[in-house]
Design a protein around this nucleic acid. Structure first.
Length: 373
DNA sequence: AACTGTCACAACCGCCTAACG
DNA sequence: TCGTTAGGCGGTTGTGACAGT
């Protein structure tokens, strides 16, 4: 007998989340903070499994998430980190604070794995070995080669592997090669360096942005259902004091309302006012390509307004993924932190050895992936 | 226009682990 | 110490969008 399911299977809704559900979930979490996932379905009336709520929040709704369009920088980091850590997506995601493990995992499976395979095949190498290496992580890449080489060779190889791993990690962690920049000791510090203090005040706005994107896509996809759903949203939001929704109607655009007609939908303006900590408010508009243009402004005349209440529980981005992944981070961060310190100490000496090491370590999948990209 | 194959990604499933009584 | 369970993680599936025929 397996473990009992996390929730009753009967009466639990499955499939894609609707904007209404998203808003209900976000407003609840805004009030109570993330956690206690089991209580969320009963307290909110959502017909969703607690797991589903947690997943929806961590992967799509929480603040600070960047979606789509992986940069070359991020690609490299993922490749390097995957080679080092294997398929430990949560650990990898902790080094890409704006990305979720699910997102990285999907991107790896759909893009990077194929890309690597193609490169490997074009290099005429044994694709099977590489597949195994990438499936099972860096530890396997060493052990698989161990079986084919003598002990003396293995010792040399091990040294090479260590140095190459260091090189790869160093590269992965310092892709922003600003000379004055030091490698942050942990992902949170890294994030703080990357994102200045203003972000704290933008956290809920950021979450609202995510909803806005979802809403926008949803409206584009199902214009017929928009008006009824919008009224539902308004009803739901008016029930909840934490989020106040302004006009959500199809009246004059000049009055700052959401245009629900398909032809006008792309001109829709969403404005989010985050009133906690600062007066920073953010106007989010969608251009004709469907991209969100985000500009700070004080204009409250508008639109689809999501106003957070002054006291926000635990809503910093780092309290999202990093807090939730604290266990994972403790597990992975400690050795990586040591590695990072090690790298810092050894950075200068390593630079002199790089050429030599990279030459020796060509047999490794990791160094090959580094070469390939 | 209709059909088929492929791709991308959101969501689910099941296992594992830590916390708690 | 043991049993239970919430939360977390990685693997897998389902499905809509798109391209090719």
């Amino acid at each position: 007998m397996g473990r009992p399911p996390c929730c009753e299977k009967t009466g639990v809704k499955k499939g894609p989340w609707t904007p209404e559900e998203d808003i209900i979930l976000v407003s609840y979490i805004q009030e109570h903070g993330p956690g206690n996932w089991r209580n969320i379905p009963t307290n909110t009336g959502l017909l969703r499994c607690s797991k589903s709520c947690r997943l929806r929040w961590t992967n799509y709704l929480r603040p600070g998430i960047k979606r789509g369009n992986f940069t070359e920088h991020e690609e490299k980091m993922i490749i390097h980190l995957q080679a080092l850590l294997g398929n430990r997506w949560a650990a990898i995601a902790s080094y890409l604070p704006q990305r979720t493990d699910n997102d990285i995992k999907n991107y790896w499976n759909t893009h990077l794995k194929k890309k690597l395979n193609k490169k490997v095949e074009s290099h005429g190498n044994d694709a099977h070995d590489h597949e195994n290496n990438h499936q099972e992580g860096a530890s396997t890449s060493s052990s698989s080669s161990q079986s084919r080489i003598s002990k003396g060779q293995w010792e040399r190889r091990l040294q090479t592997d260590i140095h190459t791993a260091k090189q790869a990690l160093c590269e992965a962690l310092s892709l922003d090669t600003s000379p004055n920049k030091t490698i942050p000791i942990n992902p949170e510090e890294q994030q703080q360096q990357q994102q200045p203090a203003v972000q704290a005040s933008m956290t809920y706005a950021s979450s609202a942005e995510n909803i806005a994107k979802l809403l926008q896509n949803w409206m584009k996809n199902s214009p017929n259902s928009t008006s009824s759903s919008s009224s539902k949203i308004t009803q739901q939001m008016s029930l909840n004091n934490n989020l106040s929704v302004g006009a959500l109607s199809s009246s004059s655009p000049s009055e700052g309302t959401v245009n629900v007609a398909p032809a006008q939908g792309l001109d829709s303006l969403f404005s989010f006012n985050s009133s906690n900590n600062s007066d920073v408010s953010q106007s989010v508009s969608i251009d004709e390509s469907g991209n969100l243009i985000s500009t700070p402004e004080n204009n409250n005349a508008g639109i689809f307004q999501v106003e957070s209440k002054p006291i926000l529980p635990d809503f910093k981005p780092e309290s999202g993924i990093h807090q939730e992944e604290s266990k994972q981070n403790l597990e992975t961060q400690v050795p990586l932190t040591l590695l990072e310190k090690w790298l810092l100490d050894d950075a200068n000496a390593q630079a002199e050895q790089e050429d030599q090491l990279m030459g020796i370590g060509m047999g490794m999948a990791m160094s090959e992936t580094a070469d390939l990209f």
